[in-house]
Simulated assay, not measured.
Amino acid sequence: MASSCFLRQILFSSLPTNLPSRSDPLSPPFPKNLTCSAPSTASLSISSIEILTNSRRKLSEVRSMATEKGKQEKKKVEIFDTEENLAVELAKYTADLSDKYCKEKGAFTVVVSGGSLIKSLRKLVEVGSIDWPRWHFFWVDERVVPKHHEDSNYKLAYDAFLSKVPIPPGNVYAINESLSAEAAAEDYETCLKHLVKTGVLRVSESTGFPKFDLMLLGMGPDGHVASLFPGHGLCDEKKRWVASVTDSPKPPSERITFTFPVINSSACVALVVCGSGKAEAVEAALKKTGDVPAGCVSAEEELVWFLDKPACSKL
């Protein structure tokens, strides 16, 4: 039986996007003003992107490191004078990967976290060349709260990003928040496995876990990524794709999260960190000097750290 996540995809692929919210738990309550029209803001010009790109200062390009499977991983750390410049370069990076994968395989699978990461995606809506209908949009973690709740990562992404770009609602894979945390995690994993079977998601040849094209991650001041917190047992999970959290040290306590094997099987990962309050965690993660989950993030093809100057002040 298909998961409720997949059923929601079918429902919304055939419905207009301006319908009122539904009480049916199978269908996420998309706000009434959701439209599939192109954003009205002017496209970023190539010249402006090039200027900002050339202004960035690359901290280092770490020597390729062998992964557990013997593959080579390219790891970059890039520093930007301002968060504004970081946001522009992140938009260019994401748009370039979107173009690459849409041409290669007809789709682009992208995963986001919540928090400040969504704010850093704001420049992406200004890029006029993106093939939005080919995007498939996922969350690396989510709080088990209603979608209109202020703690919802879905609401954060919808208000700041999804409502501004014409990604088909059927390609937006939100969790079923009407379930318990454990059941919601199982449902989301079932949804991912169905998308693997239908060819929407690739599978890593080396790990057997789903291989997303791009995972866009933020990091907390304690160094947590997704809902994988320092010292938590889920950091060592090796089998599950999606796990439930009922004891999050940061409220709300109930969440679902991708596990490290899924995160690290991604083709590309962008870890976006801004602010001096995260400088110590950045140092610990990059220098491997502490129990910081962000230091465990890797990618099958490329991991890029996007940092502003305050975030790298302790490097």
Score class of each variant (00 low, 15 high):
Val172Phe: 02
Val62Gln: 04
Ser13Pro: 12
Glu142Phe: 13
Cys312Ala: 12
Leu201Glu: 07
Pro166Tyr: 12
Thr259Asp: 07
Cys268Lys: 10
Pro169Asn: 01
Leu156Glu: 04
Leu201Lys: 09
Asp131Asn: 14
Gly128Met: 00
Ser4Cys: 14
Phe306Arg: 03
Ala279Thr: 05
His148Ser: 13
Val112Ala: 02
Ala181Trp: 11
Val165Phe: 04
Val225Glu: 00
Ala243Ser: 10
Ala226Gln: 06
Glu301Tyr: 10
Val273Ile: 13
Phe12Arg: 07
Ala183Trp: 07
Val273Ser: 02
Met215Gly: 06
Glu104His: 05
Ile51Leu: 07
Lys288Ser: 09
Ser113Glu: 02
Asn85His: 15
His149Glu: 02
Val145His: 00
Ser23Thr: 15
Lys197Arg: 13
Ser21Gly: 10
Val110Trp: 08
Thr41Gln: 12
Glu302Tyr: 11
Leu26Lys: 11
Glu177Arg: 05
Val144Met: 06
Arg143Thr: 10
Cys5Gly: 15
Pro261Val: 03
Leu44Val: 07
Glu84Asp: 08
Pro230Gly: 04
Ser48Arg: 15
Ser178Trp: 15
Lys155Leu: 04
Ala226Ser: 11
Lys238His: 09
Ser55Glu: 14
Arg63Gly: 14
Val112Glu: 01
His232Arg: 03
Asp247Gly: 00
Phe209Met: 11
Ser180Ile: 05
Trp305Gln: 04
Gly220Val: 04
Leu271Lys: 02
Lys74Cys: 12
Ile10Asp: 13
Lys193Asp: 07
Glu177Asn: 06
Ile118Val: 11
His149Asn: 10
Ser204Cys: 09
Ala279Val: 00
Cys235Val: 10
Leu90Asp: 06
Glu68Cys: 15
Val272Arg: 07
Pro39Asn: 04
Pro146Tyr: 02
Glu189Leu: 02
Arg22Phe: 10
Ala267Cys: 08
Val282Asp: 06
His136Thr: 08
Pro168Ser: 00
Glu301Lys: 15
Thr289Asn: 04
Lys164Gly: 07
Gly218Ser: 03
Glu280Ser: 15
Lys92Ile: 06
Trp305Asp: 04
Leu307Gly: 07
Thr35Phe: 09
Glu189Cys: 01
Glu126Leu: 07
Leu121Thr: 06
Cys36Lys: 14
Ala66Asn: 09
Ser227Gln: 05
Ala267Pro: 06
Cys102Phe: 09
Gln9Leu: 11
Val127Arg: 08
Glu302Met: 08
Phe138Tyr: 12
